[in-house]
């Protein structure tokens, strides 16, 4: 988490935020996604949470904001959620645990910028299939089921899968 000046680390609040997920990738909490930028206490029971969108057009942001308010509201906090654009989100902010979660869910986590380019532009076989781990995979489409993903298929187990595109 890139903390704002008044950012607080409160285990109780963090635990509640861990329960909120992106509705399009339910296994991944918004904390592991790197969407929550800061938590600020503005009153005894009042919080200001700053979140940032993954992609500009991400339709999940409104839902995420509502879910945060409901979750923290249930714990007695009056919460305001603010959308911030700068600094812009990058896939580097997905935590190690988050990457593991993606993998188990069947989405190949983002590769480094250079490997990502090799896979998406030069058609190199570098992205590992989340099912069988083979790197004998090929891109079907640079754009996939949501803005953040590309569509791949595995040439060994023949399963199609989503690849979370590197965004830097």
């Amino acid at each position: 988490m890139v903390a704002a000046i008044n950012h607080i680390e409160d285990p109780k609040i963090n635990a509640i935020l861990r329960e909120v997920s992106d509705p399009e990738i339910p296994v991944l909490s918004i904390m592991d996604m790197g969407v929550v930028r800061s938590v600020e206490r503005v009153g005894e029971h009042e919080l200001l949470i700053k979140i940032t969108p993954t992609y500009s057009g991400c339709p999940a942001m409104d839902t995420i904001a509502t879910d945060i308010m409901l979750a923290l509201g249930g714990a007695g906090f009056k919460t305001k959620v603010e959308l911030v654009l700068s600094p812009a989100w990058t896939t580097d902010w997905i935590t190690e645990y988050g990457r593991k979660q993606l993998q188990e869910y069947g989405i190949a986590p983002p590769e480094s910028e250079s490997l990502d380019k090799a896979a998406l532009i030069d058609g190199k076989r570098v992205v590992a299939c989340p099912q069988c781990k083979s790197k004998n995979t090929e891109m079907v489409s640079q754009f996939g089921s949501t803005a953040c993903k590309a569509l791949f298929k595995c040439l060994d187990c023949l399963e199609p899968f989503d690849y979370f595109k590197c965004l830097k």
Binding site: P53, Y55, S56, G57, C58, P59, L85, V140, S141, Q142, F143, G144, S145, T146, A147, L151
Partner: peptide, 20 residues
């Protein structure tokens, strides 16, 4: 199918920018 998804994804990105 792929180009359909690509073009509508691009549309979505553009509308996200419009909102900002």
């Amino acid at each position: 199918l792929e180009t359909d998804i690509a073009l509508t994804n691009i549309s979505l990105d553009l509308f996200g920018q419009v909102r900002s």
